[in-house]
């Protein structure tokens, strides 16, 4: 059973979002997603300063097996990316919700965050996907 922290929001495409105290949002991929992908060997983060549209591909995570797109869960401007993933993509495997974060965004539209799933809804989504 994969780990789904209660305080985060989730997208159907398996990204998680954490609201920071400064109003920015940190984004990564869920424990379930990293488990499915297997050992990560490459992460392509978005560019700092890039403008993201919710639901569009903005980063790529690649395991030995396959490449998978990461979709922007909300719209906004990228204010930070996790540089550590350049040398240590495996952080996404070992600590998906912590050191494995991928980018931080300054949201444009607060209502997009509300539209994401909470932990209960995401758990149900995982069960439904089987």
């Amino acid at each position: 059973m994969s780990h789904v922290p209660a305080e985060l929001k989730y997208a159907k495409s398996h990204e998680w979002v954490r609201q920071e105290s400064d109003g920015t949002l940190t984004v990564g991929i869920s424990d379930h997603a990293q488990e499915l992908l297997g050992d990560l060997v490459f992460v392509e983060t978005p560019e700092e300063g890039a403008t993201l549209d919710a639901g569009t591909a903005c980063a790529v995570v690649e395991s030995v097996k396959a490449a998978s797109d990461v979709y922007a869960p909300v719209s906004g401007e990228v204010v930070a990316v996790n540089e550590q993933l350049g040398d240590s993509p495996e952080l996404v495997n070992s600590d998906a919700y912590g050191e494995g974060w991928i980018f931080r965004v300054k949201p444009g539209d607060a209502s997009e965050l509300d539209a994401l799933m909470d932990a209960d809804a995401y758990n149900q989504h995982l069960e439904a996907e089987g």
């Binding site: 297997g38 050992d39 060997v41 395991s63 030995v64 097996k65």
Partner: peptide
Amino acid sequence: PVHYGSQLEEH
């Protein structure tokens, strides 16, 4: 079997 936990470790 495609892997038994970690493809990298098996490699």
